[in-house]
Design a protein around this nucleic acid. Sequence first.
DNA 1: GACATCACG
DNA 2: GACGTACGTGATGTCC
Length: 935
Amino acid sequence: MTFGKGSHLHLIDGSAFIFRAYHALPPLTRKSDGLPVGAVAGFCNMLYRYIEANTGSDAPTHAAVIFDYSGKTFRNDLFPAYKANRPPAPEELVPQFPLTREATRAFNVSCIEIEGFEADDIIGTLSCQAREAGGRVTIISSDKDLMQLIGGGVEMLDPMKNKRIDREGVEEKFGVGPERVVDVQALAGDSVDNVPGAPGIGIKTAALLINEYGDLDTLLARAEEIKQPKRRQALIDNVDQIRVSRDLVKLDCDMVLDFSLDSLEVQTPKLDDLLAFLAKMEFRTIVKRVSERFGVEAPAIPDVPAPAAAMSEAPSAPKPVPFDTETYEKVSTMGALERWIDAIYARGYVAVDTETTSLDEMQAELVGISLCVEPGTACYIPLGHTIGEDDLFGGSNLVDGQLAKSMVLDALKPVLEDDSILKIGQNMKYDAKIFARNGVTVAPYDDTMLMSYALHAGLHNHGMDTLSERYLDHVPIPTKKLLGSGKSMITFDKVEINKAVAYAAEDADVTLRLWQVFKSKLHTEQVTTVYETLERPLSPVLARMEMAGVMVDRDVLSRMSNAFAQKMAGLEAEIHDLAGENFNVGSPKQLGEILFDKMSLPGGKKGKTGAYATGVDILEDLASEGQDLPARVLDWRQLSKLKSTYTDALQRFINPETGRVHTSYVQTGAVTGRLSSTDPNLQNIPVRSDEGRRIREAFIAPKGRKLISLDYSQIELRILAHVAGIDSLKQAFRDGLDIHAMTASEMFGVPIEGMDPMVRRQAKAINFGVIYGISGFGLARNLRIPRSEAQGFIDRYFERFPGIRAYMDDTVAFAKEHLYVQTLFGRKIHTPEIATKGPQAGFAKRAAINAPIQGAAADIIRRAMVRMPDAIRDLPATMLLQVHDELIFEVDEDACDQVIDVVKDVMKNAAYPAVVLDVPIEVDAGIGNNWAEAH
DNA sequence: GACATCACG
DNA sequence: GACGTACGTGATGTCC
């Protein structure tokens, strides 16, 4: 039938169908081989329902499903950052893309995708052609970018809401007719697709302007006439950017297609093909439904479990494969390795684990690699097992029967780097760094440790032993059994290969099984987004930061160490003199006895051990009463801390090869979502005391480069204002007020101008206290005021900001009901202790109040970090460190200002679009030759 | 290996 | 009505 008047074309946005199916359904896999098919199943269901629903009088005469072609489009030539902030598709979705095309053809519906174009362009071109031919068009999609096509017989159907969208619908959404939608979008931009638009102009304002001036070109030509100075400037300053934005959002309706509308005529499905496809996918329910509907016999789907299990198990017993270290294979020929590689390609994913000589990834040598493709089917490839002492020339005695490291890495590299093969690891950042140092960039990867963190933060740690015991009911071979412990501990290269096979392959086996368990649990617990946006993409970013390392000047540290040692010796002599005897100043026990027994100073015992407490607070109290000895001890302790923890220890962490210090970030280290930093901890480098801050002068940039530091200003208080909905706080942030002074002013009724710094200090302590789950006792101790007075402050605070009390009560109630709390971004922090009685309940309560605030701040900086590599891709800048609300970069000195602009922008907008905060986020920046100057 | 202490946000 | 309290981390030295 020729397409013309009376024809009705349906254009289905296929990609939207896929993503909806993916997110709506649990992660189904094909039973026979574990291929992920959840999205395909959902897609088939939707397509089937669509066909069923469109058989009536208004049925389409022509129809097609349009897909995006993966890869760059002409828009990336216009604007390289276009859609640059899109996270990559989830890994288990990737193999399903071609299957959805196959499904479309199986339903005998035309299936269209064209390289270099987005589905939207094809839909645009076909709509225009159909309109010119005099026919009607229905676009089945909810994508607002398609709304510019509406009119003249073209309508949209939102399949989610089952709602038709016509001219009026467009005007409702954009405030203008379809002809002007592009103009509005060009001004407003689109953060989802990374279309810049004009800063500060949203859809509302854009529509207002377009309606006033008629169209975008007129508006831009007469921009000088705009009355509001901000809008005027936003337009004038960004004319080019707005024009590019228009080119980006404007759909290409003039594509040359190598098929005609006529070829899209609706066909009845060929039942045999359709059922064959559905049976191949093992979709039992749809097969049944389709065959009943058409009254044909359903094709048989063999009910076999995985082939390996079929051999050893009766088909009726779907028991999990038991662990058996005897079955693991030692790979010692290239032929055997090739078979494993084939098995990986057949499967589409593989669990990987490395064995090395050290826990320090920057120094560790690769000793072996283990792989697992299905539960119970795992191998170990020994590469660097040695025997005896290393000889004097650095050579070693490799044990016989091992493949050459370079050959194995050459063979595995294409697999480990293959986009379509998912790699699975436990704490994969470690293994990825080992591989990176061996020339292999592992991607993409899933990490069972991170999956567990997204699922179980607050319940237990996420080490493999814990997870295996809890979720697989299996205790893996302990490391200790292989390596021993303490002084007699050996490195993995000295482990006998047969023992290594059992241990290492088991780790890969455990990892794969955990992955299967967590995979579906992420969906049922609704933390897939947390895992996919906040955990998984961060891991490679951290790996890069750690490998980059920060340059540290050894001489600066060494000089400081010497100076500290001298001062300490002087202080020690003074202290012994004051005490009238020699004792170990570093021993709190001995010090306590001197202070409270010998000198009989006021102050009591404390704690389970019965020892006197000699913490900073107590010594400060004594010092303020004029006691010299505790004052000297405080000075001594400060120096001792700086020397032992920083100036001495940091020197030992300078990597001999890179000359830099490489910390390790523990992504699962804090229950709230914060990172922690170890070996060394670079998140607690001194800054509060002048003396300590000088240690930051040792953190430097190489010649020609600078360090820059950017930190969020008051981010936790801003989040509190948002989540608790405190209007006066929000307004204060919008007005850029001094938030602690404003709090004081509200509470005590004093003007902000000329405020007593003491009053401001008290308000600041209360603001922090609120974030920590305030108590009268704690505030009293912090401010060193009577408890009754502190309680008075708190009462007053809650009176002035009643929303905060409500937030705290609601949060605790939520925690009690669900045994977890949640951040704005969906991160769950489990709080099982909240249900207990006794003093722990108090802790749990305060932790529950604090967690969503601290956690949301952590989520925001994580989002910024995930986007950062792309944002600074073409700039001479390296992200080095994160300190909770601060990011530190090393930058070519002539690019600092530019980098600061870009980074600031990413940090400020990091919450968007997942969360639209109703407080502004501010970021401060500094530049310097060292960290002290930059901060 | 537990504990106390203290560095950071 | 008493109890015991600020939230989140990691590294170091002492002492058993």
